[in-house]
C-alpha cells in the first residue's frame, strides 16, 4: 500500500462537489440576492447620509463638532488638543475627504457591531448552550481570512459600501460579543444574590446590576471593536470602499512610499483619537471606583 500519497478523493469527485456547491450558491444568490440587498438598504442609506454630512458640510464646522465630541467624551484638554492637531495635519496634507469617509464607515460599523454584539453577548452570558454555539462561530469569524467570506458577500452585493461594511462588522464584532459575555459572567455573585434577595426580576437584575457592573469590560470591547474596524479599512478598500484604504492600495501597487506612509499615519491618528476618547469616557463612567477607602 502506498503510504506516501494521502488517499484523497479523486479529482473528478472534487470537481463535482465544487461545481455543485458553486452552482447551488449562484442559484441562491439569484433567488434571494435582491431581498438580502434590500434588507441592508437602510444601513447603506444611513452610511451615505453620514458620509455626505461629513464631506459636504464646511470643514470648520465638522472639525469643531468632531473635536467637541472628543472633549465631551474625554473631558481632557490634552486629548482634545491632540485630536485637533491631528485633524488639522490630516487636512493640510490633503486627506480630509478620505478621512471623513473612513470616519463615517468606522462609526456606522461600530454602531452596528454594538447593536448586534451587546445583545448577543447578553444571550451568551445567560445560557451555556448559546455560549457553546456562538464561541466557535466567533473563532471562525476571527481566524477565517476575510477574503474568503468576502467571496459570497461580493457575489450577492457586488462591489461597494455594503460588502465592505459586512466585512468590517464580521471582523470587528467578536471582541464586543466576547467581552460583554465575559463582563456579565464576572459580576460578583454576592451582589447578584443581593439583587435576587430583594426580589429583582431578571430584567431588573440585568439593567441595575449586571450591565452597569460589566460596563468597564464592555467598554474595553467597544474600544477593541473600533480598533479592529479601523484595521480593516484597507481590506475593505479592495472591494471598493472609498476612504483612506484606497490610497494605501494605490501606494502598494505603485510603490509610492510617502503616499503609503501618509495615509497609514492618518489611519493611526484616527485610531488614537477614537481610542483615547472612548477610554477616557469609559473611565469617567467608572468614577465610583476611583476613591478607595484607605
Amino acid at each position: 500500500m502506498d503510504l506516501v500519497e494521502f488517499p484523497s478523493l479523486s479529482r473528478g469527485t472534487l470537481r463535482e462537489i465544487r461545481t455543485t456547491i458553486d452552482a447551488g450558491f449562484k442559484e441562491f444568490t439569484r433567488a434571494y440576492g435582491e431581498a438580502i440587498e434590500s434588507f441592508f438598504e437602510p444601513v447603506r442609506l444611513f452610511l451615505i447620509w453620514l458620509e455626505n454630512l461629513l464631506i459636504v458640510s464646511p470643514w470648520p464646522i465638522v472639525l469643531a463638532v468632531l473635536v467637541g465630541i472628543v472633549f465631551l467624551m474625554s473631558r481632557n484638554v490634552k486629548i482634545t488638543i491632540g485630536s485637533l492637531a491631528a485633524l488639522l495635519l490630516i487636512g493640510v496634507f490633503g486627506m480630509w475627504e478620505d478621512t471623513m469617509r473612513t470616519i463615517a464607515m468606522v462609526t456606522v460599523c461600530t454602531m452596528l457591531a454594538i447593536l448586534l454584539g451587546i445583545p448577543t453577548g447578553i444571550l451568551m452570558a445567560r445560557s451555556e448552550r448559546v455560549q457553546g454555539w456562538i464561541n466557535p462561530i466567533l473563532d471562525l469569524m476571527q481566524t477565517m481570512p476575510s477574503f474568503v467570506y468576502l467571496i459570497p458577500v461580493v457575489m450577492i452585493f457586488g462591489i461597494g459600501k455594503v460588502p465592505g461594511l459586512i466585512a468590517i462588522v464580521v471582523y470587528a464584532i467578536p471582541p464586543i460579543i466576547r467581552l460583554t459575555n465575559l463582563g456579565i459572567r464576572l459580576v460578583d455573585q454576592d451582589v447578584l444574590e443581593a439583587a435576587d434577595a430583594f426580589g429583582s426580576s431578571p430584567r431588573q437584575k440585568l439593567l441595575n446590576v449586571q450591565l452597569p457592573l460589566a460596563l468597564p469590560t464592555i467598554m474595553a470591547g467597544i474600544n477593541q471593536t473600533i480598533m479592529m474596524a479601523l484595521a480593516m479599512v484597507v481590506v475593505a478598500a479592495l472591494i471598493g470602499v472609498k476612504g483612506l484604504g484606497q490610497p494605501v492600495l494605490n501606494a502598494i501597487a505603485n510603490q509610492y512610499f510617502f503616499m503609503g506612509i501618509q495615509n497609514g499615519l492618518a489611519i493611526v491618528a484616527i485610531a488614537i483619537i477614537f481610542d483615547r476618547a472612548t477610554q477616557a469616557y469609559g473611565k469617567r463612567l467608572q468614577k465610583h471606583s476611583e476613591v478607595i477607602h484607605g
Binding site: D188, D190, V191, A194, A197, F198, L213, H288, S289
Partner: peptide, 13 residues
C-alpha cells in the same frame, strides 16, 4: 423579606 450579607454585597456603582 430583606437581607443583610456578610460581605455587604452593595452595588458599587
Amino acid at each position: 423579606t430583606a437581607m443583610v450579607f456578610q460581605k455587604f454585597a452593595l452595588l458599587p456603582h
